[in-house]
Simulated assay, not measured.
Amino acid sequence: MIAGTVVPLITPYDEHGRVSEKSTASLIEYLHADVSALMPVLSSGEGWRLTDQQWSDMVAFTVAHSHGLPVIAGVQAPDTPGVLRRAHMAEALGADMVAATTPFGARVGQDEMVAHYRTLQGGTRLPVVVYNEEPVSRNRASLVTLLRICGLPGIAAVKESSGNPEMTRALAASGTGVPVLQGWEDQVASTPGVDGLIGPLANPEPGLCNTLLADPGEPLQRIVDAVCDLFGLFRDDWYLRVKRELARRGVIEDACAPSGEHAREEDES
């Protein structure tokens, strides 16, 4: 069962735009004692924009340096065949699970979402974590749809990033037996009953995430919110800001960007 603090790893690059194995290993060494699982190449790892080589390298390096923690490979691709392709890559690389969004597009219907996860769980031997979000996929599942998906075999957990505390609470209280993990650090206190947290704050501050899960009251929530605001975790370029903080602490070598596009984003932030 997935529970506690799961870290959605940032993807560290070297000056040539390649994934840095040295920085990946250093990051995992920094946080492994305080987290329950490693989740590379999801949103905080820029999974939707990585090349196959970058994506494969990050998954492989995470598996190699995992300290025995489960590795949940993120998969963000526009359609079901694309998700399945990377799920098969994750299998070959030694990942323990995959975490996947719905297909991309505002017109993707709720029945299509159920069919997507049914195809995915039937097409890979790996357990599937459902990632319910909107910024990348441009859609999100309803509560009824999530309950239907949780009834499928092979569904390991839901990363619930809808931003709707009422829906998250209802899903957590539904009794499906599928763990529900909050995807927003600022909503832990408002969603009692969740099984854990998957948020970018776990990269620099996994211990603080554990403390919030153990005591999800408003006083500590306000502290966590202030730390998230300090690090810029609710801004569009949050992953770059996390990298800067980790580089400042000496955890990774540098907050390098993989391309000129990323460098421009960093300069404009």
Rank of each mutant, 00 (worst) to 15 (best):
T5W: 01
V7L: 02
P8T: 02
P8K: 04
L9I: 07
E15K: 09
H16T: 12
V19K: 04
S23I: 01
S23W: 01
T24F: 02
I28E: 06
A37N: 04
S43K: 07
S43H: 08
E46F: 12
G47A: 10
G47L: 07
R49L: 10
M58S: 07
V59P: 06
F61C: 07
T62E: 12
S66V: 01
P70Y: 10
P70R: 05
P70T: 13
I72M: 15
V75L: 12
D79H: 14
T80L: 08
G82D: 12
L84N: 06
R86K: 15
R86F: 15
M89L: 15
G94L: 07
G94F: 06
T101M: 09
T102D: 09
P103W: 05
F104W: 14
E112W: 04
E112S: 13
M113Q: 15
Y117E: 05
Q121V: 14
Q121K: 05
R125W: 00
L126P: 15
V130Q: 11
Y131L: 08
N132L: 09
E133M: 12
E134A: 11
P135A: 12
V136A: 07
N139A: 03
R140E: 13
L147Y: 12
G154E: 12
A156Q: 13
E160V: 03
E160M: 05
S161H: 07
N164V: 11
M167W: 06
L171G: 05
P179F: 06
Q182R: 05
Q182A: 12
W184L: 15
E185V: 05
V188R: 00
P192R: 08
L197D: 04
I198S: 00
G199P: 00
P200D: 08
L201R: 00
A202M: 11
P204F: 06
P206S: 07
N210A: 14
T211L: 13
T211S: 14
L213Q: 03
D229I: 01
G232L: 09
L233G: 05
R235T: 13
D237F: 06
W238V: 07
Y239D: 04
L240W: 11
L240R: 09
V242S: 08
L246G: 08
R249M: 11
V251W: 08
A255K: 11
A257N: 10
S259D: 13
S259V: 13
G260I: 00
G260C: 02
E261G: 09
S269Q: 09
